[in-house]
Write a protein that binds this DNA or RNA. Structure first.
Lengths: 249, 249
DNA sequence: AGGATGCGTTGACGTAGATCAAAGAACGGC
DNA sequence: GCCGTTCTTTGATCTACGTCAACGCATCCT
């Protein structure tokens, strides 16, 4: 599903943007050029980082890593979307974040993963072994500094999300979810008025502390009130052949 | 108020305990001996850190720092309790954490504070200027590493709290709040069966995403069910003179 | 002493959102 | 094509928690 019509917001500074101006916006094709670390690295380090990584892909719904597993790898997303979540023993799930291209998974450098992660649709990523990543970090203080900044930024976002979960109603939750996702997508250099939502209502609900029915009703209401415009299938809309079929139908 | 009777839990590892075994448990009298950084510091660095800090106190309800203010200082709590919170424009509040002795405030090393902090009861702390703390960190990679570990640990706790806020009911929220606070106090070397709760019902509610009435009712219910034992005033209970007065009354 | 203030508890009642249920759309497999 | 599965939407109903209100108890101030 795709929604559009979100009012433009004063954009927050791109916290992880490359201060060298070497890269135009985010660089998502290769992790060594990813803005969240590139700025701290010299060219020989970039080469080293590149030699340490390998490209991997994940199918829809496949698992990148599981909560409690030994943290053997660090991933950098290059294509697609990933959900991070915690499961309670009785099956209740809390999604703690969605990852977009350019984001890292498993950066904590702790012994075990604190959450599970799986692919929403096809995903491409760069994989580092934890050992090589950790040893690289050990020898490059400025890289650690970047890492710490990234962790700090995540912490701020986590606090934002606590406010959302604890003190916002359903409509506010859905609205700020759409806006913050829109802002992140914009920072990747994508469209500001149309937003693709590859995750299910269930995913959104588990992210927002709601049920899938409430999410569905709330989105319906936002569309009814003309706050957003729902485009059930953006791909088909943009495909003339299929459009004709719709016209014929 | 004080509660007791919380069942013993398998204790989590003290993530920030001093691995050198130099200190018995937490050292709360002075920040330079605080376990969360001590392990990474040599004696000359400890001395330097000590010379950079100054002891300060805060009265009940006074403000240590405010969201959005320039982050000029880092504090290390030595006595008392502090609440960290975000305010929404309409006054709704989300408490994102309570600090105990040994905890740091303002460690993010970012330009501005991401939350407000104020004292719950009298508080003692050590204060570092941000500049001196940051320059010290700049020259000591291993200290930065400790800092990053601390941030990572906080992030894990933040995710725990998201699960609580998004997917637990009122009774589960209050129960896990009491248990996790108990665990933290135990790690400070204090009593495991009695827990002091200096914050108000309102504070707990704003931490747990509830109203103060629901918190009050839930605690009453836990006491009625003999899950916890509520001691309205532990100080007075332990004071023989006052006890006699109660006996006379 | 007496009034104001803050905090906690409890009751009565209202409601946002959960739960239960049904149906349709899209998709993949055979 | 048909069937099973997954996802979404919508309606009806229920309930956990919020809201409103009253009251008791400390503490503090004058």
């Amino acid at each position: 599903m795709t929604v559009s019509g979100l009012a433009e917001q004063t954009s927050r500074p791109a916290a992880l943007a490359c201060p060298h101006g070497v890269h135009e916006g985010h660089c998502t094709t290769c992790p060594v050029r990813n803005v969240s670390v590139c700025a701290a690295l010299a060219s020989d380090e970039l080469a080293l980082l590149g030699s340490l990584s390998e490209d991997v892909t994940f199918a829809d719904k496949s698992t990148l890593l599981m909560q409690g597993d030994p943290a053997n790898a660090v991933y950098n997303l290059t294509e697609g979307m990933v959900r991070l979540y915690r499961l309670m023993p009785d099956g209740r799930r809390q999604i703690v974040g969605f990852l977009l291209p350019g984001d890292f998974v498993g950066l904590a450098l702790s012994q075990r993963y604190a959450f599970s992660a799986d692919a929403i649709g096809p995903v491409a990523a760069c994989r580092f072994t934890r050992a090589s990543f950790a040893s690289l970090v050990d020898t490059k203080p400025h890289l650690l500094r970047r890492l710490h900044e990234a962790a700090t930024h995540e912490l701020t976002q986590a606090q934002d999300h606590m406010v959302l979960l604890g003190r916002r109603n359903a409509e506010e939750k859905v609205a700020s979810f759409l806006i913050s996702l829109r802002d992140r997508v914009v920072r990747l250099g994508r469209s500001a008025i149309t937003l693709n939502l590859p995750m299910t209502r269930h995913d959104m609900a588990d992210y927002l502390g709601l049920t899938l029915e409430t999410v569905s009703r709330t989105i319906s209401k936002l569309a009814r009130d003309h706050v957003i415009l729902v485009v059930p299938d953006g791909i088909r809309l943009l495909n003339p052949a299929r459009l004709e079929q719709i016209g014929e139908g």
